[in-house]
Every structure is written in C-alpha cells, then in structure tokens.
C-alpha cells in the first residue's frame, strides 16, 4: 500500500465521524457513518475501504462500544461500494441514489441479526422506536427488528451515496487522478 493510501485511511475514517456535526445542524435522522468507507473504496479500492471501515468502527467504539459488533456492516459496505465503483455507479445521482437504496437493504439485512442477538434491537433511539412501531404493526420480533434497521438504513445509505458522488465530481481531476479508482468510479476512464 502506498503512503498516500495509508494517509487516506485515517482522513476518511475521521470524515465519517465528523459529519455528525453537519447532520446535527440540519436535524435530519441520518448517521452518514459509512461516508468515509464508501469514499475511500471509490477512491482507492476495497482494501483501503475495508481498512477505513474497521478503523472507523474501532475509533467509534471508544466513544460508544455498541458500535464495535457492527464492524461487519462496514466491511459489507466497502465490498458493495467497490462493486458500485467498478460498475461506474458514482457517475451521477441517477445511478448513485438507487445504488445507495440497494445498499440500505443489504446493510439492514446484515445489521439485523447483530442488533437482535446482541442488543435486543435497542442500539439507538430511532431504531428502538421504529422496532416498537414494527411490533405494534404485528411483525415478529425479528421482523420488527429488521423493520427498525431498514427504516434507519434505507434513506441514510442513499444520502451517503449521493454525497460521495458529489464529492467525487467536485474533486479536481488532477487530485482524483492520484487515487487509483476515482476516475473509473465516476465513469471518466
């Protein structure tokens, strides 16, 4: 791994953890905690993306340890983002948003068993409330847990993909060309 890609990992992980300040300002029910993982993958491939996801989870766990079991989700996100980058799905919002919605489904399928077995679906207030709504709608406990994860992940991942697409297109071409996957991800090579 080159020094530049090594330097990218902590920057991307810190982006994921610092975006909460922007989210708080607009008061939207979003996490954006996989932004750095998706961005690092789109710029530099799956190895850098997975490393970013693991570092993000590890550092986030120091603030709230309940994040650590969800490191698997970060790895799945990196692999999905790699497939999306290879397919050039970051070339515009029309391709990125549906790809993000697809990731929302996959991420909620991945996180539901962890949330159910380890935390009894009580990871965040939003997920707990959505799970309670699912139970009130007559869903099984596991079904209600999936409902809770789905409600929180579906829109979040679509917004994250759209944001990463905006970043990739806003990057000067000379800067983008320094990363091995950036131009391919936006369909420019």
């Amino acid at each position: 791994m080159s020094i530049r890609l090594l330097a990218l990992i902590p920057v991307a992980a810190a982006i994921s953890l610092a975006l909460s300040a922007a989210v708080e300002a607009v008061a939207l029910p979003l996490f954006l905690d996989t932004t750095g993982t998706i961005l690092a993958t789109a710029l530099a491939g799956p190895g850098v993306g997975i490393a970013t996801g693991v570092v993000t989870s590890a550092v986030n766990s120091l603030r709230n340890p309940t994040f650590w079991p969800f490191v698997v989700v970060q790895i799945i996100v990196a692999l999905y983002a790699w497939i999306a980058a290879r397919a050039g799905l970051f070339r515009g919002l029309r391709t990125a948003v549906p790809a993000g919605l697809g990731l929302g489904v996959i991420a909620s399928i991945t996180s539901t068993p962890i949330s159910y077995v380890v935390f009894g679906c009580s990871t965040t207030s939003g997920i707990a409330l959505a799970t309670a709504v699912g139970k009130a709608l007559g869903l099984s406990p596991l079904g209600a847990c999936f409902f809770g994860s789905f409600v929180s992940d579906f829109g979040d991942k679509a917004v994250t993909f759209a944001l990463v697409t905006s970043v990739l297109h806003a990057l000067p071409r000379r800067t983008a060309a320094r990363f091995p996957w950036a131009l391919r991800a936006i369909g420019a090579s």
Partner: peptide, 11 residues
C-alpha cells in the same frame, strides 16, 4: 443544506 455543509468539509 447538508450538501453545502458536508462538501467543504470532505473536500
């Protein structure tokens, strides 16, 4: 608004 806040930070 989120885009206007996040983009300068990430770039």
């Amino acid at each position: 608004a989120l885009r206007a806040l996040a983009l300068p930070l990430v770039l």
